[in-house]
Design a protein around this nucleic acid. Structure first.
Lengths: 164, 164
DNA sequence: CATGAAACCCCGAATTA
DNA sequence: TAATTCGGGGTTTCATG
């Protein structure tokens, strides 16, 4: 299930190709990396089993579904609440991301909403969690990069940097 | 290429299934939705052409590749620089997300790094952009939710909320 | 939207390097 | 240990109704 993956050049090519288009078939992937389809399938399975690839997702654009607003919500709250923030916001589907932080804020959420009124209703639900919760909301103007691919050149460059 | 999508129940089922597993074939999707494979293919193509689905991506776990650190970096800088922040951080591959914000901070980045030293080098590169740039770095402790799916129940609930 | 036919792809097993 | 070849069965795609 894990240990040291240690990817070779072809693994990286597969990884990058699947980040670009997760629906590519093994045959087509094999063409790109100069390998037979079964060989590709085995490598991909290894990447999945190692947890390097944890899934494949269609990227949907909330804007196209009427969610005109995206906002980042900085959240401060008591330790007890924050420890369970993940479970709590599970009931608020407009929260697409939830990360617990070390620092000034206890958590950072990414929220989508159809309108300002809708955003307000999401914030209300967040504030209703507990009296200790307070929020700072930042409207997203644009997202020049979202979920960029992890690449081999990126990894190589990092390995050449100062050690741990 | 666009206009009013207006999805029906089957479109939503397909959308949700593909967000869970983007590699599902049309035949298997058809089984889930009770539709023939060609019908599924046409619906999926429509969703793609409408921009509702903008792509399919393998989800890779930076941690499994040695990126032990994830951090959110709040960025403040002059208007001229911030307007081009997307292009600028394109050269810093450790920046996986970049969003421009309205509010206190001008942008919010998500960064991965192999070590504290590596993170430091990323911050150095960010500060070297321009003298007006300053950063606040928040280490991510955990991400209870990342890129949650957009669902039909979520969309339905929103439509029943107060109007615009 | 379903059906049917042709081409293609996937998968497992056996083989080879 | 890892990749290739090969055959059976399922899948995609395009035509048609």
């Amino acid at each position: 299930m894990e240990s040291k993956p240690e990817l070779d050049a072809k693994d990286w090519q597969l990884l990058e190709a699947l980040q670009r288009d997760a629906r590519l078939g093994y045959a087509e992937l094999g063409r790109k990396v100069k390998l037979s389809a079964p060989a590709v399938a085995e490598r991909v399975k290894r990447l999945e089993d190692a947890g390097v690839i944890s899934g494949y997702r269609a990227v949907v654009e909330p804007k196209r579904l009427g969610y005109r607003i995206e906002a980042m919500v900085r959240l401060r709250c008591d330790g007890g609440i924050c420890a369970r923030i993940g479970q709590i916001v599970a009931d608020i589907p407009e929260v697409l991301d939830c990360r617990r932080l070390a620092g000034e804020d206890s958590a950072l959420l990414r929220v989508v909403a159809m309108s300002i009124g809708h955003l307000e209703s999401v914030l209300d639900r967040l504030l209703k969690i507990h009296a200790s919760v307070s929020t700072t909301t930042l409207i997203v103007l644009q997202a020049p990069h979202a979920n960029r691919a992890v690449t081999r050149t990126m990894w190589d460059a990092a390995r050449k940097l100062p050690l741990d």
